[in-house]
Nucleic acid binder design. Structure first.
Length: 226
DNA sequence: AACCAGGACGTGA
DNA sequence: TCACGTCATGGT
């Protein structure tokens, strides 16, 4: 079985740093490429810089559940336009207003409730880094969302397993398609250096490569397998 | 015009 | 534990 670190380095060489987690509402820096897509901060791992950005990641992680990121962006922009992109405002705002704002991201009835829950949670921990079980106890936060929040909002070394990871590495014969979330997570964490940047970058690279090679309407060929 | 997207929850075996 | 139905908008 091929070395995961070699696959990581191949992907990094092909695609370059991905700049995850995208933060739509941050100041552009000198390091931003002129035409780089807003949000992605390629090669800059100094995020998040404050609790507002931390909450933007939490909100994005919930909103992107089984949903295209382009739809999440619309919802995040609506939230920002209504001054709702912070935990306190989300907690206090009217539920119907919240639903209206996040409508483009789909599942808005349940996601509005989930956003309220995660907002209350963020306020309750007062900026300290939460434990994994703690976040998992929030309704609407499952294993992938919890790991995304820990890895990207709190810079904790928790590997994120999503549908792309499962699909791509099933094709690469690392495990079968009915492997459990935690089994897959352990495979990655046991075979990679416990490095937050590697975890962050690898997950983002997997998403990019899987979009190109392992999603619908895309033929799998020899270049898919690195 | 189906099909799918950076899942999670509730339910009943 | 586990398989299955449900949730919803927007792009292809």
């Amino acid at each position: 079985m091929k070395d995961l670190l070699k696959i990581y380095n191949s992907l990094l060489k092909i695609y370059g740093p991905q700049g995850w987690w995208p933060l739509l509402f941050r100041k552009r820096t000198k390091r931003d490429k002129e035409n780089s897509f807003i949000g992605y901060h390629c090669g800059d791992y100094s995020y998040p810089k404050n609790n507002q950005q931390r909450f933007e990641i939490c909100a994005g992680a919930v909103l992107t559940q089984n949903t295209a990121w382009t739809n999440v962006e619309k919802a995040l922009i609506n939230l920002n336009n209504n001054d709702l992109l912070n935990a306190k405002a989300v907690k206090e705002t009217d539920l119907q207003e919240l639903k209206k704002a996040i409508m483009p991201a789909g599942y808005y009835n349940q996601k509005a409730i989930y956003l309220k829950k995660i907002a209350e949670f963020c306020l309750s921990i007062k900026g300290r880094t939460p434990a994994r079980e703690e976040i998992l106890s929030v309704k609407g936060v499952g294993p992938e969302t919890a790991d995304s929040i820990l890895l990207y909002a709190y810079n904790q070394p928790e590997f994120v397993v999503d549908a792309y990871t499962r699909r791509m590495f099933t094709h690469l014969n690392f495990f079968n398609k009915n492997a459990k979330y935690n089994e897959i997570k352990e495979i990655f964490e046991n075979r990679l250096p416990k490095d937050v940047i590697v975890y962050q970058e690898f997950h983002a690279l997997i998403v990019q490569h899987a979009k190109n090679h392992f999603s619908r309407k895309v033929k799998i060929n020899e270049s898919s397998f690195l």
